[in-house]
Structures are given as C-alpha cells and as structure tokens.
Design a protein around this nucleic acid. Structure first.
Length: 393
DNA sequence: TCTGGGGTCCTAGGACCC
DNA sequence: TCTGGGGTCCTAGGACCC
C-alpha cells in the first residue's frame, strides 16, 4: 500500500501573536492575553483562548475587550518579533516540501504529495508537521488535511486549537454541507446578508441554489465561485507564486487631524516610509493611492498613475499632496491617512529618464545606506525634525 | 462596543483604440 | 450622418481575509 488522496495540508498557527509573546514571557501561559493597539482606537490583533472564552475576538475594539476581560494582560504588538517567528515557521514548513503557499504570516497551504511514500497516511503527515513546529519553534499549530484547499482550510478550523483533522476522500460533502455559509472563505457580512435573503443558511442550502441566480445577486465572479465551492468543487492547486502586487502604509490617529501642516507632515512621513520599503524590496511602482478616512469614518481614495515608475519619497510626497487636494478633505477632521503603491516592477527593469524626479534616487539611496549603518531614526526629511523616518532596524 | 494595518480581488464607468 | 463590438487602461469604491 502506498499513497493517499488527502494531499493538501492547511497549517494555521494558534493565537500566533499571543503565543510568540508567551514564548519569551512564560509567565503569560495559562492567562488571558490580548495583543492589540493600546490606544483608544486600537483593535484586538490576537487573543488567547482564555480571553476568547470571555467573548474577546479579533478586530474587536480594545476598549470593548477590556470591558469583557478586565483582568487580561494587554500587550502592544511587536511586529518585528512576529515576522521573525513567521520566518522560523515557514522554514519548518519548507523542510517538509517546497510546495508551500503562504496565506499570511501564520498560515499556509502545503501540497504534500511528495511525502506519500514516506508516511502511512495523511494523519501522520499532519501530526509530524505539528510536532516539528512545536519542537523547532515552540509554537502550537492546527492542521487540516483533505483533498482540496477548501476542505483542508475548514478542517483546520475544526482542529483548533492545537489539533489535527483529516477529512477523508469521499466525505467532503458530508463534512461541508451542515456548516454555515459564513464558514466559507469569501463570505463576510455583506454576502451573508444577501445569502440569507435567498434562504441559504447552511452550505447545503447554498448548493441547492442555481449558479446563475447566485451570479445575478452576488456578481459573476463571486457567484460562480460560491456555487462551485458549495458543491465541494475546488480544483485550485497549491501555488508558490508570491510576488507582491501592492505596498502601502497607513495610520489612524489618536485624535483627528485638522492642522494642514500636520497633515502634510504625515503625508511626508508616509511617503518616506513607503519609498524606503519599496527600495528595500527592490521595487518601483507606477500608481500612487491616497486613502483618507474622515472623522465620521467615511473613506475616500484618490489615485494617480505616473508616467515613470518611482521609488523615491520626493515623487511620492508630491503625488500625495496633489491627491489630498483633490479629496475635499481640507478643513475636515482626518482620522486616517494611507499611502500605497501598485503597478510594481523590479527596480532593475529598464526605465525612461524622468527629469522631474532626477537626482532624488541617488540622494535617497544614500539615506538608505546611512539608515542601514546607524538605524532608522538616523536621518529623515528635514520637515520631520528628526522624530521619525524609515523602517526600524 | 465604535470600528488597525497590510494586503487581495472584483465591479463599473469612461477614455481611447482598432 | 449615425452607429458596431471588443480590448485595455485608468479611476473610485467595496468586500473580504488575517
């Protein structure tokens, strides 16, 4: 006997940020722990299962979490530590197979077909992944094993926390149909409401609806996608393609901004951070996006496509200011400012001479070198008065 | 309770070209 | 003088995910 059909693994780290904190602060074990922005406008990024038992959830306002669970330890996020731990996790996953598709810092699909001859069955593969992750990183993970991405992902949900679930070939529909439509990847609040209007509560209900009806109500793409998923029809392969399509930075302010000088200063700071990240990634971008959220939470975006791709703060800042002037946000309270870039290409790609931005590339590349040697705060735009600039470390 | 930050993908209208 | 259909690019907004 050799081989098995359940060759797709979905690996999902349990309460990832919390567990990374516990790894270096064992005193946090067994306690309710919440990681998230600590300001008045912060939300929960990760909650331990002790806190979840009290009703704390991801994306919940932190003030709400404090009310539900006042005795929890509340920690600010340390993204540098999480990025590093994520690197350890992915190194372990790639020691099993090169066919790894990252979904986020703490989640991935693996195609383990290549391990068929080395393990008696999918359960042994799943448990081996969990065991090695635990040994090498000290972090708990849940694993789902199945014949498709759709079912493997739902299986890992069921395995949580710190467990493993195999859905055997042939059992997909029986596993899938009793679940609620909201369990499907891609069904959020808005789609849930529309499906409820159609009388679809479970995935089994959804499978009864004709695809063309779903397409009319949900759009061509999502409608067809859901019609197929509900029938357990999911041939998507595990893909190792990971090229970034966009890069962005944004910030929500403790108090809404109204001072135009302050707003320009923040746009400059964003331009500087974004340009720095682009250069570090060896990328240039063509389309600049500005995002402005006003005090009443309405959000407007403006974008502009440059003639020539750029990675300089100078060009980004000029574009950002011009875009802001097109929003009618001037004089109104600003809750959030974001700056993004898409239409990315490798910085090594041949480029036309851009006279307007000429000269700035070299200046800013020199800034990068100084930051690499002396740290992110060593040098920045004069307007910022030395209080910020660049990426940490 | 009052809503983060970093992403991906989709829709739809208008411009422009063939 | 009035009118095709398709393709691509740009822009704005929205849904969704972790």
């Amino acid at each position: 006997v050799s081989g098995f059909d359940e060759h797709i693994a979905h690996v999902d780290m349990d309460a990832f940020f919390v567990e990374v904190e516990r790894r270096r602060r064992p005193g946090l074990r067994g306690r309710a722990v919440v990681v998230g922005g600590l300001g008045n406008r912060g939300v929960v990024a990760s909650a331990s299962y002790e806190a979840r038992r009290r009703g704390v959830r991801s994306a919940m306002p932190i003030v709400h979490a404090r009310r539900l669970c006042p005795h929890a330890d509340f920690l600010p996020p340390d993204h540098t530590a999480y990025r590093e731990a994520s690197g350890e996790v992915f190194a372990v996953l790639r020691s099993f197979t090169p066919v790894v598709e990252p979904l986020s810092v703490d989640e991935a699909f693996l195609d383990v077909s290549g391990l068929r001859l080395h393990y008696p069955g999918p359960a042994e593969v799943g448990e081996a992944i969990r065991t090695v992750l635990r040994e090498q990183t000290g972090l708990p993970a849940s694993v789902g094993m199945a014949t498709s991405k759709l079912i493997a992902k739902l299986a890992s949900d069921e395995a949580k926390p710190d467990g493993m679930v195999v859905v055997a070939a042939g059992e997909e529909t029986a596993f899938l149909h009793p679940k609620e439509v909201g369990a499907l990847w891609g069904v959020g609040e808005a789609t849930l409401a529309r499906l409820a209007e159609l009388g679809a509560v479970t995935i089994g209900d959804l499978a009864e609806l004709p695809a063309d009806l779903l397409q009319r109500r949900l759009g061509a793409s999502l409608g067809m996608h859901l019609a197929r998923l509900a029938r357990a029809d999911d041939p998507r392969p595990v893909s190792t393609e990971t090229e970034a399509k966009s890069l962005s930075v944004e910030a929500t302010y403790e108090q809404d901004l109204t001072d135009p000088d302050r707003i320009e200063g923040e746009l400059l700071r964003h331009a500087d951070r974004l340009a720095s990240r682009l250069r570090r990634a060896g990328l240039r971008g063509r389309t600049v996006h500005l995002k402005v959220r006003l005090g009443d939470f309405t959000t407007v975006t403006r974008s502009h496509t440059l003639r020539t791709p750029t990675d300089t703060a100078h060009v980004l800042y000029r574009a950002a200011k011009a875009l802001f002037d097109r929003t009618s946000a001037r004089g109104r309270p600003v809750r959030l400012l974001g700056l993004g870039m898409e239409g990315l290409e490798a910085a090594s790609a041949p480029r036309q001479l851009d006279l307007e931005g000429a000269g700035w590339d070299e200046v800013e590349r020199a800034v990068d070198r100084i930051r690499d040697r002396f740290g992110g705060g060593a040098v920045g735009p004069a307007r910022l008065g030395g209080e910020a600039g660049g990426e940490p470390g």
